[in-house]
Every structure is written in C-alpha cells, then in structure tokens.
Amino acid sequence: MQSTLVSAPETAPPMMGQPAPLLAVEGLKVHFPTRDGVVRAVDGVDFQVRAGQTLGIVGESGSGKTISSLTLLRLAPPPARIVAGRVLFEGEDLLRQSDKRLAQIRGRRMAMIFQNPATSLNPILSIGQQLTEILRWHTGASHRAALDRAAELLALVGISDPAARLKQYPHELSGGMKQRVGIARALLCEPALLLADEPTTALDVTIQAQILDLLAELRQRLAMSMVLVTHDMGVVARMADRITVMYAGRICETADAATIFNAPQHPYTRALLESVPRVDHSYSGARRVLPSIAGRPPDLLHAPPGCRFHDRCPEAEPECRRVMPREYLLAPGHTVSCLRRGSPGEATP
C-alpha cells in the first residue's frame, strides 16, 4: 500500500557549481490522522546522500527513522499522509511521480532491505519465484536468464548451493538466510541507492557481523550509495560516512561520522553515545553504572511545545520549553538544532 501525497511545495534548486546529490530530502512531513488527532511522525526532515556515500539515520524507536525511509519510495503504511516536502532522486521528485514511474524506480534504481526478513518475503512463493519476478519485470530477461542471475546473487551474498535454495520457501530458511535473500533481492538490478532498514534486527551477534561485512563489501563492489536506518550506534560507527540523528520526528544533528563520535554537539546525540557500552570501561560492581536517557520520548499525538527533547535534556532552560530550535550550521557539513548551540528557533504554542 502506498501513502497518500497531499502536497509537495517547491523549494530552491541546488547552488550553482555544486554537484547535485544522488538523493535530497527537503522539508519532509508525514502525518498519521487518527480519531484522537494527528500524529506528526516526520515533522520537517532534511538530509542528502551523495554518490558512493553511506548515510546512517539513528535514534530511539519512534523517532521517525523507518517512516522517513519508507516514504522515500512512497511505501509508508496507511493512513500516512505526506503533507509537505520533496524527495529528489536522480533529479526526479519521487513524491510527484505516477505509480507507473515509481514501479520503474523501485527495485531498479532504488531498492530496500526491509526490517523483518520473516515478513518481507512472500510465504507462498518459492525464493526463485520472488527473485526472478523482479528481474523479469525490470529487465525483460527470460526465465532461464533470470534464474541464473538470481542464483548468482544468492552466491554473492554467501548462500551455499543457490540452485537448491531457489526451489525452497521462506519457512525452510533460517533468519540469517532470509535476510541474505532480502539483500540479494534488493541488489538484483544493481540499484544506485540501497535503503537498509535495521538490516540486522532479530539476528544473533555473529550473523549481524556477517551481514554488516557483506553490506560493506557489496557497497564497494557495486559502487552504490546507502541509507542505513538503525538504533545501534555501533552499526553506524562501522558503516556510515555521515550520520543524521533523529528524535521525535525531527533531526537533532547531522555531521560526518568522526565528528558525531568525537565532538557531538546536541545533548541527545551525546546521551545516545554515553548509553553505549565501551570495551575500555568496566561496569562491574558499583564503580561505574552504564548511563541511560531519563524519561521517555514524547507522545507525538500531543507533541510538547518547544524543543521536543527538553523534558529529558540535562541542559534545558526555560526558553527550550517554548521555542522550537531551527537548524544551525556549526561548521561546513555539521548542523545542529539546539538553542544552546546558536539556533534562533521559533516560538510554538
């Protein structure tokens, strides 16, 4: 099912002399109307991905990461409504394209690895049927050629005896193998951009490491860009060139990975990093307790005024409770939305 597009206002084109990014998301807002009100799941999100780059989008559950990524291909589930923004991919605004044009782009130029490998595969179709259908739709390949290509991709993602696996059904595969099939499916047509939504969820630690190594290798081999959605700071440290931190439907901070990990500026970014266990620290006994972020994310049906992180922020001031911070440029490529870092902000009711 596709989300409903309500509007997509015009914004300024890229500055002259700068190469256009492969993907540019501008002012994206996605709302969910309910009987009790409107949930503003994504509330004015901007980010870019350049050719060959991996962008990591991180944040707690409910921050809007997955809805943002699904909306790029207009796959956010009903009753999602895209109320504002643009998604520019290879020069086209995907939010304004017809269903026919989107079908040509999905899987061909932009593909997705979904969060749950157990539910993203059709249980009543064999692995071969699910993979060859994509190839035949996009490339017009013969059944034999499509089977050969599917077997080649299964071998590429590390599945043994691919010819036999093509005849099997999803319930006959382990969780790790299902995820590898999901990766193979996304890579069948060698897309320019791969969206990976929590690609290691529900997998054990050993399999997680194998999947991440595989994605890194395939990214280099196929020269593709990637948007990696995760709540795991360790995953983005290993995979991402740039990182966008989301909280309650808004972006807190964006910078290159080294800056985020070595000089984070937003209190939420620092809190996320401090809550990650470190191998050079001891947490035994009473000497050190692993920090956690106090409180809970806000209810987006009744989003608080001002900065949405203010009631959990150790640095919050009275102004933070009434003024929504705007994005502030700290340095080239490094932006933060925080009143204490220089953002003028705007008053909210």
Rank of each mutant, 00 (worst) to 15 (best):
L121F: 01
G64W: 13
D46A: 07
L147N: 08
G285T: 13
P325K: 03
L273V: 03
R278Y: 04
V289I: 11
P325I: 04
P9M: 13
T201Y: 01
V276Y: 06
A216R: 12
R288S: 15
A51P: 04
A163K: 14
R278A: 12
R278I: 10
A271P: 04
G182I: 07
Q179A: 06
P305W: 07
R221E: 15
L88D: 05
S292W: 02
L135W: 00
V30E: 04
A145H: 05
A111P: 03
D93K: 14
M1C: 11
L121Y: 01
D93A: 14
D148A: 14
M1V: 13
P305Q: 11
L88G: 04
H310S: 09
V25M: 05
A316E: 09
D43I: 03
T254C: 13
D241R: 05
S343L: 04
R74E: 04
I82T: 02
A248L: 08
R144C: 12
P14Q: 11
I293S: 01
N262C: 14
Y268M: 07
R278E: 13
A164T: 14
H138D: 09
S292F: 01
R50N: 12
A20G: 09
R308W: 14
T244Y: 03
C338Q: 08
L173R: 05
F47K: 03
Q129E: 15
G52R: 01
R242K: 13
P14I: 15
E92H: 10
V39P: 03
G107E: 00
K178A: 04
R81K: 14
